[in-house]
């Protein structure tokens, strides 16, 4: 399969997510980690953008980072899949390569 894009920055601080969405080919996946997980909280402008991206990209977020930041599972956009670190590792094996939008 294609690329696993990893975004670790809040969309309100940096343009990492915006650039990732612009440069992620259809079918590639997006994983939110660290401060990147703030993008998944709805309602918000970033959540609206991500909701649209779901048409072309499987979307994942790291549970440990959500929990650390007080983001409850039921506050997240529909269709996002949560993974733990074991799931993070598994994703990297399922996709051919990773691109971290640092």
């Amino acid at each position: 399969m294609s690329v696993l894009h990893i975004v670790n920055k809040s969309p309100y601080d940096r343009n990492s997510l915006e650039t990732c969405l612009r440069l992620a080919a259809a079918g590639s996946a997006i994983l939110l980690i660290e401060d990147g997980v703030y993008a998944a909280r709805k309602p918000s402008s970033a959540a609206d953008t991500l909701q649209q991206a779901l048409d072309n990209h499987p979307l994942y977020a790291l549970q440990a980072d959500l929990q650390a930041r007080g983001l409850a599972t039921d506050s997240l956009i529909d269709g996002i899949q949560l993974v733990d670190y074991d799931g993070f590792v598994k994703l990297t094996t399922e996709y051919d390569k990773t691109q971290s939008w640092l």
């Binding site: 612009r22 080919a25 990773t98 691109q99």
Partner: peptide, 17 residues
């Protein structure tokens, strides 16, 4: 960006700075 997205897809190892 569309062409660059394809170039990214074709790589084996991606390092970011």
């Amino acid at each position: 960006s569309a062409e660059l997205a394809e170039i990214i897809e074709q790589q084996d190892v991606i390092l970011n700075f």
